[in-house]
């Protein structure tokens, strides 16, 4: 009986639930992490101290920003394909789609780093410039962490090989729970990235 399988010295049901609960708690923590950036943005914007919130010469490069956020959104969509494939037990589609989703997340991170080099203004050019650099950096760190998480899921599924096909096995159930948990956080992070994009590139 699959329920009797022990993972990490504990009943598998607990481990599966840990993914669900853990990912939701992680989202809660991330909400407040991003809230601090959002608060900084709105607060400094409304204060506009010394009229230095957003001097006219500071222009966020919308092309790069659009490319970054597009990579993230596409990654989330491709991840959804991967996840559906896993649910339908089409393992090869899962593997390829998960890999693509992972690479797209990395691409977004790389584009972000390139954007910093092409910025056209320094972080010291007023409140907006500071917030821009910090907030995109804050997203970047989380995106890299999520890319790591996705990679571990993908690598685990590759190494597990054909044993994954048996949906009653512990490994498979753990993987499914892991994918579900990752998905919840990833959708949240991408949504935050989209909102960040709107505020930083269009509201300003």
């Amino acid at each position: 009986m699959a329920d009797q399988q022990l993972i990490e010295g504990e009943d598998i049901q607990a481990a599966v639930r840990n993914y669900w609960v853990g990912s939701r708690l992680w989202i809660a923590g991330l909400v407040f992490y991003f809230l601090a950036f959002a608060f900084s943005f709105l607060y400094l914007r409304s204060l506009n101290a010394n009229h230095m919130w957003h001097p006219a010469k500071v222009q966020a490069p919308a092309v790069w920003g659009t490319a970054i956020v597009a990579a993230l959104v596409v990654s989330a969509i491709v991840f959804t394909i991967a996840r559906t494939a896993l649910e339908r037990n089409s393992l090869s589609i899962w593997r390829w789609a998960a890999l693509v989703a992972f690479l797209l997340a990395l691409t977004a991170a790389a584009l972000q780093i390139v954007e910093y080099r092409e910025l056209g203004f320094g972080p010291g050019a007023g409140g907006f410039a500071s917030t821009f650099v910090a907030w995109t950096g804050g997203v970047l760190v989380v995106v890299l962490g999520m890319a790591y998480w996705l990679e571990t899921i993908w690598a685990t599924s590759i190494r597990a090989g054909t044993t994954l096909a048996d949906t009653s096995r512990g490994e498979r159930r753990m993987l499914a729970a892991n994918v579900e948990g990752f998905g919840a956080v990833w959708y949240f992070v991408v949504a935050v990235a989209v909102a960040t994009y709107g505020l930083l590139y269009w509201v300003g």
């Binding site: 608060f39 900084s40 607060y43 204060l47 101290a49 010394n50 007023g126 500071s130 910090a134």
Partner: peptide, 20 residues
């Protein structure tokens, strides 16, 4: 970032604020 990368979150003269 304020201390290393010249951002100005917490100084008032350059668009930041100690209140933040």
């Amino acid at each position: 970032l304020d201390r290393t990368a010249t951002t100005t979150f917490f100084t008032s003269g350059n668009g930041g604020s100690p209140y933040l």
